[in-house]
């Protein structure tokens, strides 16, 4: 044992970079919602970028260490404390055996990543240590952490040691309003031209139903559908399709009212039409949105989506270089 959970936070889970390859059986990729933040946290403490770390949402856990370790907290601004004393986010710091890591209230963003030198040791299930709670799979016993859980580390080491930091320009959080770039497609042709325009010009707000499966948005205008015959097998609502696959980041609009963007623990398919997909470069940002955050969807084409993807990779390369 190396870490004892004194209090678990709201829904703190073990996550790495996920479990690709089983989506065709309904098992989603899972892994950190903000993958950039996870990678940086691991780099700061000297772990492999994809090592298993803790993802805390809205509220931090309280953890007692029974071995010396190096820790870094990235992502949303959830200020860490060691024995009650403030530590910097996006920086590595040391914790001694017997000390307690706790957190102040969340200041911005939604999810913080807590990397611990050595990396968290839970069983590898289907190639990953990530938690998929809906399927009771992976992570710590297939669920979020609970009080008195005891976590092990793969090795007890101080890793890269304390005092490493990432400059503010290389940290990334959503703006206000948040802008999520999306590629129209999938069943975009089912909606009227006016609804298509409104979708991208309206300001939406994150609804309380926002979790690792998906984020729901409210406040924009309802979607109007083009007149068309209902396809056999789709169901009676104009927003129904013959159940098909859902891309990660796809934007479904059940009943034409409130869009839902699917995330890392996505349901793999279902019977609702989709208007498009949030591009890969902006998926991390969704994981940092709190309920009620104002959000706009920004229309992009494939060329812009790929350019944004390269920008993100370039930013990650800068972090790698700065910590090398």
């Amino acid at each position: 044992m190396a870490i004892k959970v004194i209090s678990p936070g709201l829904a703190t889970t073990v996550q790495d970079l996920g479990r690709p390859g089983y989506y065709h059986l309904g098992i989603p990729i899972s892994g950190a919602m903000d993958r950039f933040a996870l990678r940086v946290a691991n780099m700061l403490v000297g772990n492999e970028e994809g090592a298993a770390a803790l993802e805390a949402v809205f509220m931090g856990p309280e953890l007692e260490f029974t071995a010396d370790a190096t820790v870094a907290v990235t992502g949303g601004d959830l200020p860490p404390k060691v024995d009650g004393e403030a530590r910097e986010s996006w920086s590595s710091f040391e914790i001694k055996a017997g000390q307690v890591l706790s957190f102040d209230y969340l200041k911005s963003g939604a999810r913080a990543y807590i990397a611990i030198s050595g990396g968290i040791d839970v069983p590898v299930v289907l190639g990953s240590r990530s938690t998929y709670a809906l399927g009771a799979l992976g992570g710590f016993e297939g669920r979020p952490l609970g009080k008195d859980d005891e976590l092990k580390l793969l090795s007890e080491t101080l890793g890269a040691g304390s005092g490493r930091t990432v400059v503010p320009e290389l940290r990334r959080l959503p703006g206000n309003p948040a802008e999520l770039r999306a590629l129209p497609g999938l069943y975009w042709h089912w909606i009227t031209e006016e609804s298509g325009t409104n979708f991208f010009s309206d300001t939406w707000k994150v609804a309380p139903e926002a979790d690792r499966i998906g984020y729901r948005f409210k406040g924009g205008q309802h979607i109007q559908f083009n007149e068309r015959e209902r396809p056999f097998g789709a169901g009676s609502d104009p927003s129904n399709i013959v159940d098909g696959c859902y891309p990660y980041g796809s934007i479904q609009v059940p009943g034409g009212t409130e869009p839902i963007v699917l995330h890392r623990d996505a349901v793999s398919g279902g019977g609702y039409f989709m208007v498009g997909t949030v591009i890969s470069a902006d998926m991390d940002l969704i994981g940092q949105l709190q309920p009620h955050s104002e959000t706009r969807f920004v229309k992009v084409d494939m060329e812009e989506a790929l350019a944004a993807r390269h920008d993100r990779q370039a930013m990650l390369d800068k972090v790698r270089a700065s910590l090398a």
Binding site: L183, G185, A234, G244, P247, Y248, T277, R309
Partner: peptide
């Protein structure tokens, strides 16, 4: 054929269900 963002292609063989 339609793209689901920059990482997916969604292929609708038919809009309605059949074997």
């Amino acid at each position: 054929y339609t793209f689901g963002g920059d990482e997916h292609i969604f292929v609708e063989v038919d809009e309605e269900m059949s074997l």
